[in-house]
Structures are given as C-alpha cells and as structure tokens.
Amino acid sequence: MSEEQKSEQEKSTGKVPFVDYLVLDKTPYLQAHECESCGSRYFDRRNACAKCFEDTFRQVPISREGEVTSFSIVQMGPIPYVSAVVDCEGTSVKCTLMNVEATPESVNLGMKVKLMTYSMGEDSEGTEAIAFGFEPSET
C-alpha cells in the first residue's frame, strides 16, 4: 500500500494497521510482496529479492486460513503467550496465537487457525491501531 493510500485509509476509518502488511479492508487480510520474477514472498520493505536478486514486486493477498507448523509458549514476561508459525496455503506467517490458552495442552502442531484482528487502543488523536493474530478455526 502506498503512503497516500495509507493516510487515506487512516482519515476515512480512523484506524491504522499495526504493520504495513495488514490490510484493513472490511475483511482484513495480510498482504505480501511477491517477486514478479520468481514468486518469492516477503512481508518487509524490500530492496530486492533474496532468491533471484530482481527488484519488482506485486502485492498479493495471503490466505486467512492456515495450519500451525511450529509454536512455542514464551514465558519470559509477565504474561505467557503462544508464538507460532502458520502455513497459510503455502506462505509461512509469523504470529501470536490469540483466543487460546497459553498451555501445551491447548495448542497442537497441525492445528487449523484463522486470521483475526483486535484493537491496540487509540493514540492522542483518536486513531485506533489494529493488530492481527491467528485463532483456532471453529469446526
């Protein structure tokens, strides 16, 4: 998303995404930079493609559904949380699992999850920040 589009979005909705690659549409989704030459996908601002060294990218939406391929329950702070890697139909996404107890019994490798968003609160100008996580898919 360009800077202009972004500030447009902010003005019209009063919301900003926690990271650039979260798109706050009616149905929010994650978006990757996909290398036009080799198809590799990235979430950060790019100088070039790490696989093929080309530098043209298109924006592609990432599936909102995925499967947990790895996780850890991080207990070094005051609140334990589940850090996970989710395979979203072929694209790996790093996230925190939400709406799940941070216990080994509550999380499984291969577990089906889906994208969710939540408010991080408003700043002094009333702009609301929206973050994303993944949560267990209802079956």
Partner: peptide
C-alpha cells in the same frame, strides 16, 4: 521495515532466542 507501530515482540510471535529455537525443534 514492517512499518510496525511498536515492538513486534510478543505481538507478532517472538524473536527472542529461546522461543525461536523452541520453534525450530517443534517444526
């Protein structure tokens, strides 16, 4: 590079070593 509004640590998983290497074993 992610245009993050604050630290991503905990908000988007973890980048701290014990958590990263835990996930490497779990993977």
């Amino acid at each position: 590079r992610y245009g993050a509004l604050s630290s991503t640590e905990g908000r988007i998983g973890t980048g701290i070593m014990p958590g990263v290497f835990a996930q490497i074993g779990m993977e």
